[in-house]
Design a protein around this nucleic acid. Structure first.
Lengths: 201, 201
DNA sequence: GTCTATAACCCGATAGAC
DNA sequence: GTCTATCGGGTTATAGAC
C-alpha cells in the first residue's frame, strides 16, 4: 500500500507530479496538443520515470489525469452545493464559481475533462470511458443535492444532466469569448430549471 | 469573382474539397489530431494544392473550415426553428434533430466547431475568433426566433446563449456516453426555459 | 494550378547504464 | 526508480518541375 500521503510533508513523488502536470496541460490545451515530453518537463520527471509509472504510455496517464481532474471538480461541486441555500441558488453558485475562477488564468485553465473528452470519442475508448465516468460523477453529485432538497428522483436526474451540460457548454462559450456572460446566463437558467422542477415535485 | 457554383454540375474544385474534408475531420477528431496530409488525402488533393489555396497553412484552412461548419449548422438551426410551432417546441426540436442525426455516424460526426474551439483557446487566436463567430451566429439565429415569437430582447439574448450552451454540452455528453438521453433532457430543459421566459415577457 | 520529393523538426516509445 | 540517448515514424511546410 503506497498511496500518496504516507509521509505528509514530503515532496510528491514523480508519479503524482506527472498526473498533476497532465491535468493542467490537458485542461489548457487538450490531450492531442500535449506531448509526453512536455508533461515530463512540467512534472520535473525524466522520460524514464514516465514510462516506469505509466507502462501504457500517454493514454495510460491520460486516464489517470481524467480521474484526478474529475475528483478535483467534484470536490468543488460538492462543497459549493452543500454551502448554499436554497437549492436553486446552490446550482447557480456553481456557475458563478466558474465565472469567478476562470478569468484568473485568463481563461486558459478550463475543464480538465471536456477537451480530452471530445478528442477521445473517435480515437480512444479508454479515454472516452474515463471522461464518461467524470461526467457521471458530477451529475451524481448534483442529483444528490436536488433529491436531498426534496426533488423527486425523476426530474432530479434530468435536471442534473442538463446542469452538467449547461455548465460545460457555458464554460466553453465563456472561454472562447473571454467573457463571463455565458456563465452568468447559465446561472440564471439553472435557477429557472431548478425552481420549475421543484414545483413539479 | 470565382465563387464556387459557377458551373453548377462541375465537380467541386480542390479548395472546396479540402474545406469539406476538413470540416468532417475536425468534427470527428478535432483540429490537433488531424494532419494536413490526412485532409489532403480525404479531399483528393495533393500537398501542392493545399498550400496553394491556403498559404497560411493548416491554421488558414482551419479558419475556413470553422466558418463553413458554422454556416452548415446555422442552416439546420434556421430551418428547424422556422418550421416548428410553438416557439418552445422549436428549440426542443433542435435538440431532437441532434439526437436523431448523431447516432447515424455512431456519434463520430459531432459539432464542427466545439472540439477545435476548446483546443484553440490557448493555442490559436485566429481559430478562437472564428469559433466565437460561429457561436455568435447560432446564438443570433435562436435569438431572432425568440423575439419573432414576441419575447422581449432582454430575456431572449440570455435564453439564446443558454440554448447554445445547453445544445453543445448535451451533445458532448451524448457523444461521450453514446446515448441520446442528454439531448432529450436538453430538449425538455429548453421547453422549460423558453416557456418561463415567454411568460415573463 | 497541380504534383513529387524532401527538408527540418517533433512525436511516442524504448534500451540500457546506473 | 532514475536518467540519457536514440530509434522509427510522424508532423508541417517548402522547393521546383510541369
Amino acid at each position: 500500500m503506497t498511496t500518496e500521503p504516507s509521509t505528509p510533508d514530503a515532496r510528491p513523488g514523480s508519479r503524482e507530479r506527472l498526473i498533476t502536470a497532465a491535468v493542467q496541460l490537458f485542461s489548457r490545451q487538450g490531450y492531442e496538443a500535449t506531448g509526453v515530453k512536455e508533461i515530463a518537463a512540467a512534472g520535473s520527471a525524466p522520460m524514464g520515470s514516465f514510462y516506469f509509472h505509466f507502462p501504457g504510455g500517454k493514454e495510460d496517464l491520460g486516464v489517470a489525469a481524467l480521474a484526478r481532474g474529475a475528483e478535483g471538480f467534484a470536490a468543488v461541486l460538492r462543497r459549493t452545493l452543500a454551502s448554499v441555500e436554497p437549492v436553486e441558488e446552490a446550482l447557480a453558485a456553481c456557475a458563478q464559481w466558474l465565472a469567478d475562477d476562470l478569468p484568473a488564468s485568463d481563461w486558459a485553465d478550463g475543464c480538465p475533462v471536456a477537451t480530452t473528452a471530445l478528442e477521445s470519442v473517435v480515437r480512444s475508448p479508454a479515454l472516452r470511458v474515463a471522461a464518461a465516468a467524470a461526467f457521471d460523477q458530477w451529475e451524481g453529485a448534483i442529483r444528490d443535492r436536488l433529491t436531498s432538497a426534496g426533488m423527486a428522483p425523476h426530474p432530479a436526474g434530468e435536471v442534473a444532466a442538463s446542469a452538467v451540460a449547461l455548465l460545460e457548454g457555458a464554460e466553453m462559450l465563456a472561454r472562447v469569448r473571454a467573457d463571463p456572460a455565458p456563465l452568468h446566463h447559465a446561472a440564471a437558467s439553472l435557477r429557472t430549471l431548478t425552481r420549475a422542477a421543484m414545483e413539479r415535485s
